[in-house]
Lab assay of single mutants.
Amino acid sequence: SSRTRFTDYQLRVLQDFFDTNAYPKDDEIEQLSTVLNLPTRVIVVWFQNARQKARK
């Protein structure tokens, strides 16, 4: 499976959201998916990875 290449804009939006809320609800994931034009699955994985990094 090929890795998703995020744009600077997508990363900024995801990071800004994460800084406020590391555990987005389903409807928030749907909204991010629509706004960023990314599959919900990709967003879910991004947040999982971001939470892992934040824990270190």
Rank of each mutant, 00 (worst) to 15 (best):
T4Y: 15
V44P: 04
A22Y: 04
L32V: 06
Q31D: 13
F6R: 01
K25H: 03
D8H: 14
E28Y: 04
F17A: 12
A22Q: 12
R5A: 15
Q48C: 11
V35T: 14
R55P: 09
V35D: 06
A50P: 00
V35E: 08
W46D: 00
K53T: 13
L38H: 04
D8M: 08
L32C: 02
Q15N: 08
D8N: 04
D16M: 04
V45N: 03
I29S: 01
K25Q: 06
S2V: 11
R3T: 15
V45E: 11
Y23R: 13
T40P: 05
A54T: 09
Y9Q: 15
R5S: 13
N49E: 13
D8G: 06
K56T: 13
Q48G: 07
T7R: 02
V45R: 04
R51F: 06
T20R: 14
Q48Y: 05
Q52S: 05
I43Y: 00
S2I: 10
V35N: 03
V42L: 08
R5P: 12
T7Y: 02
L38A: 11
L14M: 13
N49V: 05
E28I: 01
S2E: 15
T4F: 07
Q10M: 08
A50K: 04
N21S: 06
F17N: 13
A50H: 03
V35K: 15
V45H: 05
T40N: 02
V35H: 12
L38G: 00
E30A: 14
E28C: 07
F6S: 02
W46Q: 02
R12F: 01
F18V: 08
F47R: 01
V44N: 12
N49W: 04
F17E: 05
P24S: 00
K53G: 13
Q52I: 11
K56N: 05
R12S: 06
K53I: 08
N49A: 03
E28L: 04
D8F: 04
V42C: 05
D27C: 11
S2N: 14
Q48P: 00
T20K: 14
E28K: 12
L32F: 06
Y9C: 09
V45K: 05
S2Y: 10
Q52F: 02
D27N: 12
F18N: 03
P24F: 01
L11W: 04
R51Q: 05
V44S: 12
D19H: 07
V35L: 12
F47S: 02
R5G: 09
F6E: 04
Q15D: 10
Q31P: 04
F47V: 05
T4M: 15
T34D: 07
K56H: 12
R12L: 04
V44R: 09
V42A: 09
K53A: 14
D27L: 12
Q15L: 11
T34Q: 08
R41D: 15
Q31H: 05
A54I: 09
D8V: 05
F6D: 09
F18I: 08
